[in-house]
Lab assay of single mutants.
Amino acid sequence: MLDDRARMEAAKKEKVEQILAEFQLQEEDLKKVMRRMQKEMDRGLRLETHEEASVKMLPTYVRSTPEGSEVGDFLSLDLGGTNFRVMLVKVGEGEEGQWSVKTKHQMYSIPEDAMTGTAEMLFDYISECISDFLDKHQMKHKKLPLGFTFSFPVRHEDIDKGILLNWTKGFKASGAEGNNVVGLLRDAIKRRGDFEMDVVAMVNDTVATMISCYYEDHQCEVGMIVGTGCNACYMEEMQNVELVEGDEGRMCVNTEWGAFGDSGELDEFLLEYDRLVDESSANPGQQLYEKLIGGKYMGELVRLVLLRLVDENLLFHGEASEQLRTRGAFETRFVSQVESDTGDRKQIYNILSTLGLRPSTTDCDIVRRACESVSTRAAHMCSAGLAGVINRMRESRSEDVMRITVGVDGSVYKLHPSFKERFHASVRRLTPSCEITFIESEEGSGRGAALVSAVACKKACMLGQ
């Protein structure tokens, strides 16, 4: 009897593995994704193909990295998701002549009506938060230079001027797309009239992360975010950046690689679950690469896999709870928690219980395998993109072996128990001629924006502006 049951459990697990095998990517698959990513990057950089390229390769006008001589107080704003952060950054000489960066910050959550109302409502709310922060720190009387981390696709015309191309991540505030974001912020500050600010720089969160990590390690020339969304930036040779005049030196390019796949480059790798996630998203047909990796989508992918296993009578005796059938019910943090389970399955059992399920031991094991399959594919897909960037940098610099540091931020990278190990191992397999160091950014977005502002202020002083 026991043997029969054991055989049935083994057969069930084997069927589960057959279904989950769809998520496995072979090294040849990853090399294919990497080569296609490089081709799209090239198209994004070139003037004649930029418009139709899915990977936009947006110039950021960040050319210099901090040298350690900029000092002063800077205000930093960070808008990239449902939370908005205001930070005071003091850049100065530390002990023994070292450079020191001290920060104080406060988080504000953005109400739904500000995210989806008008641009005026959104930026009025942001300036209200700045006003509140300055009151708390008794700094209303000071006109501070301000660095703005704005983590949406922007076409820069200068370091302090950028046109919002399109909202992502659930934002829909009308009247912002096609307009200068810094102008919208300046107008809102003017409307309030109770404080003055000098907006000197606007950067993407990947750029802010790279600059913040450069402060720790001067070989950091790539910034990457794996959180709600997924994106990367890197220092490109100016001669390859056709959208900006000049051939000397390097400029940081914001790849906006989340949109890779929007022209069909990933079609052969998309599964039924991916198509369902895409169809029910706020932007169907867009940001397809990001939807395979980002935390906004990972939990939902797992939920759809679990429903398939229920329908195949391989999980929960073929019956799903009402909660499990509800879109968004299986949160991405559950994926991390399930994979963090120590082996007694308590954590998995508790999560499934909150979803109205009474799982068996085998159910718990199957749910864990589903989570591992989805998150491992995410790590491997992400590795193909980064390997594409790094191999490109090595080739354009004609280096036999390139040493490089990548600064990384984002909740999936930082909080998932195995993502970074799987990701690092896969990147290294795909970049055999590179020695890569990964560092995690601390308060990256805010500190990085302030350091970019410090560079901009120093330049302005040198130019006598």
Rank of each mutant, 00 (worst) to 15 (best):
C129H: 12
N391R: 10
T255I: 15
K15C: 14
E339F: 02
I348R: 03
E245S: 04
A370Q: 00
E216L: 03
F74E: 00
S373Y: 06
D3H: 02
F195M: 06
F133P: 00
R275S: 06
L2P: 13
V91P: 03
C382M: 07
L88P: 00
M402D: 12
E95C: 09
L58G: 10
V335D: 00
R46I: 12
G193F: 01
E196H: 06
V253F: 04
G464M: 15
S131W: 05
S360N: 05
S426H: 04
L309W: 04
K161E: 09
M121W: 12
E67P: 13
V86S: 08
I366V: 06
H380S: 08
T361H: 15
Y234V: 05
F148C: 11
L185E: 01
D278G: 06
A384T: 10
A384F: 10
P59T: 04
R63Y: 00
E268C: 09
K291F: 12
M210A: 02
T206H: 01
F195Q: 02
D3Y: 03
M402H: 11
C220D: 00
T118K: 12
T405E: 01
D267F: 01
E196C: 02
R333C: 13
L271W: 00
Y125W: 12
F330Q: 00
F148L: 11
S445H: 12
Y125G: 11
V101K: 02
F74T: 00
P153M: 15
T82N: 10
D247W: 03
L20W: 14
G162T: 13
P153C: 11
Q323R: 07
V244I: 08
P111Y: 08
Q138G: 11
E268V: 03
G261C: 06
Q219Y: 06
V310I: 12
P111C: 09
K39Q: 05
G328K: 11
A259Q: 12
L314F: 10
E67W: 04
C457W: 14
E290A: 13
L47F: 11
S69D: 15
S418K: 07
E95D: 08
I366L: 06
E319Q: 15
V207A: 06
G175Y: 04
P66F: 13
Q337Y: 03
I366P: 01
G388R: 03
K169C: 15
Y413W: 10
L77Y: 06
M107C: 07
H141L: 05
